[in-house]
């Protein structure tokens, strides 16, 4: 999880990932950030994130993103 958090901070430096569970719903992350994050995750974790996975629930928090990666790896 910490590794993912560092990756997210590196790609979206201005975002407070630790203290929000509604990153997309509260418009903290916008579509551009999501695509940047998705590209970084795909490169780093070697998983295939499809357009169907791009729903707010999968990106609202670090743990949601972690769950998505775990699910895709499994």
């Amino acid at each position: 999880m910490n590794e993912l958090l560092n990756l997210l901070k590196e790609n979206c430096p201005g975002v407070d990932f630790e203290n929000s569970n509604s990153l997309v719903d509260d418009e903290i992350l916008e579509s551009l950030d999501i695509v940047t994050i998705v590209s970084a995750i795909m490169d780093e974790y070697n998983v295939e994130i499809s357009v169907e996975d791009l729903i707010p629930e999968n990106f609202n928090s670090v743990s949601a993103m972690y769950d998505l990666i775990t699910r895709l790896k499994g």
Binding site: S31, V35, V38, S39, M42, D43, I49, S50, V51, L54
Partner: peptide
């Protein structure tokens, strides 16, 4: 535009190749 053009285009194989090249 975001859901039906931007996301599919940004995550498409050619654009990801462009992304890798740029990085």
């Amino acid at each position: 535009m975001r859901d039906y053009v931007f996301y599919p285009m940004a995550l498409s194989s050619p654009m990801r190749k462009v992304g890798s090249f740029a990085r």
